[in-house]
Amino acid sequence: MSIQHFRVALIPFFAAFCLPVFAHPETLVKVKDAEDQLGARVGYIELDLNSGKILESFRPEERFPMMSTFKVLLCGAVLSRVDAGQEQLGRRIHYSQNDLVEYSPVTEKHLTDGMTVRELCSAAITMSDNTAANLLLTTIGGPKELTAFLHNMGDHVTRLDRWEPELNEAIPNDERDTTMPAAMATTLRKLLTGELLTLASRQQLIDWMEADKVAGPLLRSALPAGWFIADKSGAGERGSRGIIAALGPDGKPSRIVVIYTTGSQATMDERNRQIAEIGASLIKHW
């Protein structure tokens, strides 16, 4: 067993022997301040990774656009098919120029040779490549099948209805392509620590998230040296922004954090800054 596999296998073990965790309302004060600064709703939840206990939450059962955070769930569904012998990570998928959609920095470079399922998941999570996500959605049967996968996990809230990039439209009061912070946090925890996926697939999923290259201005910008984070960000229309993450000190994750916002007129930089400040408060009061 590799060191990384050992780390993920012992996530519940280490967490069980940690000192009790206590909620700190100071972080919620910052979440509410972010709402004021952005002029928009902000949803927040913080779960203990081992027990699933909610440590703090704000608007945990209000719907927010998922945006690209759905790509972690998508690759979880792909990995479940791999575990069941219905898919192979090494299978190569070929596609054409007509398949390319807006923001496809990886797939646009491989029109000639195609990409493997493993490479597509890596591109979808680490670079948020939209064509990679659409190609992977095709392998599982489309958005409705991802929703069905989530329902089978016990998540009857999260739903995907459309493809990239239309799913980022974020129309107010439109339930399409949305989740709730509580539902997303619980589902992410199941994917990373539950028995739904094999140990190898859980490790692969967290490795992809740990290698995320496009979430630097968010929670990662607030992390002290030595902290662990595996995350996936999302951005959408109407001032929408979000991030889902597993993080913790001492090089291992111990909490799940989900943050979503929508309806702001603020710039992307300002949305990023507010999420980073929430992260800084979380870490300060850990």
Rank of each mutant, 00 (worst) to 15 (best):
H24A: 09
H24W: 08
P25I: 13
V29T: 07
K30C: 14
K32G: 00
D33A: 06
E35S: 06
Q37H: 07
L38S: 06
L38C: 14
G39E: 08
R41F: 03
V42Q: 00
V42Y: 00
G43Y: 12
Y44V: 12
I45V: 06
I45S: 02
D48V: 00
D48K: 13
D48E: 02
N50C: 10
S51W: 11
S51A: 09
G52Q: 03
L55C: 14
E56W: 12
E56H: 02
E56A: 06
F58E: 13
R59I: 10
R59P: 07
R59A: 07
R59V: 04
P60Q: 02
E61K: 13
F64H: 12
P65Y: 15
P65L: 11
P65Q: 03
M66S: 09
M67K: 09
M67F: 15
T69M: 11
F70S: 03
K71P: 03
V72A: 05
V78H: 09
V78Y: 12
L79I: 01
R81H: 00
V82T: 06
G85V: 02
Q86N: 14
E87R: 13
Q88E: 13
G90C: 14
R92D: 07
H94M: 15
Q97Y: 06
D99H: 13
L100G: 14
V101G: 01
S104Q: 07
V106K: 00
K109D: 13
K109N: 08
T112D: 04
M115I: 08
E119V: 13
S122A: 01
A123Q: 00
A124F: 05
A124R: 08
I125G: 13
M127K: 07
S128K: 01
L135T: 01
L137V: 08
T139N: 05
T139A: 03
T139Q: 12
I140Q: 11
G141C: 02
G141Y: 00
G142F: 02
A148R: 13
F149K: 15
L150W: 03
D155W: 13
R159M: 11
D161K: 00
P165Y: 01
P165Q: 05
P165C: 07
E166D: 12
E166C: 02
L167K: 07
L167G: 06
E169L: 03
E169I: 01
P172Y: 06
D174W: 04
D174F: 00
D174P: 12
E175Y: 00
T178Y: 10
T178F: 14
M180L: 02
P181Y: 14
P181M: 14
K190Y: 13
L191N: 05
L192W: 05
T193E: 03
T193L: 05
E195V: 03
E195S: 12
T198R: 08
T198E: 07
S201Q: 08
Q203V: 13
Q203I: 11
Q204A: 11
Q204E: 10
L205C: 02
D207V: 03
W208I: 04
M209H: 11
E210M: 10
D212T: 10
V214I: 11
G216F: 15
P217T: 09
L219V: 13
L219M: 01
R220K: 07
L223V: 05
L223Q: 14
P224T: 05
G226D: 12
W227K: 06
F228S: 12
I229N: 02
A230S: 07
D231M: 15
D231I: 08
K232G: 15
R241I: 08
R241H: 13
G242S: 07
G242D: 14
A245P: 07
A245E: 14
A245S: 07
A246H: 08
L247E: 02
G248S: 04
G248C: 07
G248K: 08
P249N: 06
K252S: 04
P253C: 15
R255G: 05
V258T: 09
V258C: 04
V258M: 15
V258W: 12
I259F: 11
I259L: 06
T261P: 05
M268A: 13
M268I: 10
E270W: 02
R271W: 04
R271C: 01
R271G: 10
R273P: 06
A276F: 07
A276T: 04
A276M: 07
E277F: 13
E277Q: 15
E277P: 12
G279W: 12
G279S: 07
S281C: 14
L282V: 08
L282F: 02
I283P: 14
H285Q: 06
